[in-house]
Simulated assay, not measured.
Amino acid sequence: MTRTAPLYQLKAEFFKTLGHPVRIRVLELLSLREHAVSELLAEVAVEPAHLSQQLAVLRRANLVVARREGSAVHYSLTDPRMAELLAVARGILSGVLAGQAELLADLQASAAPEAPPAA
């Protein structure tokens, strides 16, 4: 009998796949619309070989799909919910960063030298 991996392990693998800045940027762009590789290259600003490598990772994970149109290759998301996931992540990060900004402001305020007493 073959055992499948527990769901938490599959989730960890899924998030590991997302764990690269170039892959996240590509997914953000594809959340807006389908893009040709040449468009992705212009937006992501990495070497073509590096982009190709990251697109291959996303294809193997079935997160993106490619289609050929003449000599151009166009990519799109396999599931539109990826855009929702990225938006939720953005919201979580915004909250975390806002909390850190408040903490930093509190630290800076408590480290400020006290004013000398008035004469």
Score class of each variant (00 low, 15 high):
79 D>W: 01
81 R>T: 00
81 R>D: 01
81 R>I: 06
82 M>G: 02
82 M>V: 12
82 M>R: 08
82 M>Y: 02
83 A>F: 03
84 E>Q: 03
84 E>G: 02
85 L>E: 02
85 L>P: 00
85 L>A: 09
85 L>Y: 02
86 L>N: 01
86 L>K: 06
86 L>T: 04
87 A>T: 08
88 V>R: 10
88 V>W: 00
88 V>K: 09
89 A>K: 07
89 A>Y: 09
90 R>C: 07
91 G>H: 08
92 I>D: 09
92 I>E: 14
92 I>R: 13
93 L>Q: 13
93 L>H: 11
93 L>D: 03
93 L>V: 09
94 S>D: 15
94 S>R: 11
94 S>I: 11
95 G>M: 00
96 V>I: 13
96 V>D: 01
97 L>D: 05
97 L>T: 04
98 A>S: 14
98 A>L: 12
99 G>I: 03
101 A>D: 15
102 E>I: 03
102 E>L: 11
102 E>P: 07
102 E>A: 10
103 L>N: 12
103 L>Y: 12
104 L>Q: 14
104 L>R: 13
106 D>H: 13
107 L>I: 10
107 L>A: 10
108 Q>H: 13
108 Q>W: 13
110 S>I: 05
110 S>W: 09
111 A>N: 07
112 A>L: 05
112 A>H: 04
113 P>W: 09
113 P>V: 08
113 P>L: 01
115 A>Q: 11
116 P>S: 08
